[in-house]
Amino acid sequence: MENQITDYKSIPGWGMDADPDNEPTYPMKNYTGDDHNRINYERSVQQPVTVEILKSNERPTVSAVFGTSVPPSGLSGAIRRWAFKHSEDRYRHWLPLILADRINVYEGIIDDIKKGHFPNILAERGFKATLKHNPKKIIRQVITGVVAVMVIKSMFKSNK
């Protein structure tokens, strides 16, 4: 910021060829010039922050509204908190989030079991629909599975 030139309008030719109609984003965008007011617009009141919200470090505050669906928790939550220390520009923001998503799946299963519900993974994968509309796929999967087991078994035998 300290390098910012403030008297740019005195540069010879400044703005001479500006063409306000050359707005490639139109009609998606109805250019008003307000972009130069940056984030100084009249804002809605702030939704109270009642759960932990991870905020992008590319903005100064949380947005006026936000979702409170699943606050970060457990190991996946710890990884997510770390990820949010880094900007959206960085791999170290996104890759840990994907890792957290995968860990979160196991946390979900443990959570289910703790609540006395053993997840019916076949049903959750829509097995009934596959059975009805693509039974060949199931037959293929069963055959592949059986063949794989047989191959592994025979490898163990020949190793002995």
Binding site: K29, D34, S44, V65, F66
Partner: peptide, 27 residues
């Protein structure tokens, strides 16, 4: 939100006041 400079210019898919978690996408 209808109030931020993106919404006001018709960019309702790019609202700045509906997603604290990423700046590249609206809520």
């Amino acid at each position: 939100c209808g109030k931020c400079n993106f919404c006001k210019q018709g960019l309702y898919g790019n609202c700045h006041e509906s997603n604290p978690m990423a700046t590249a996408v609206g809520g």
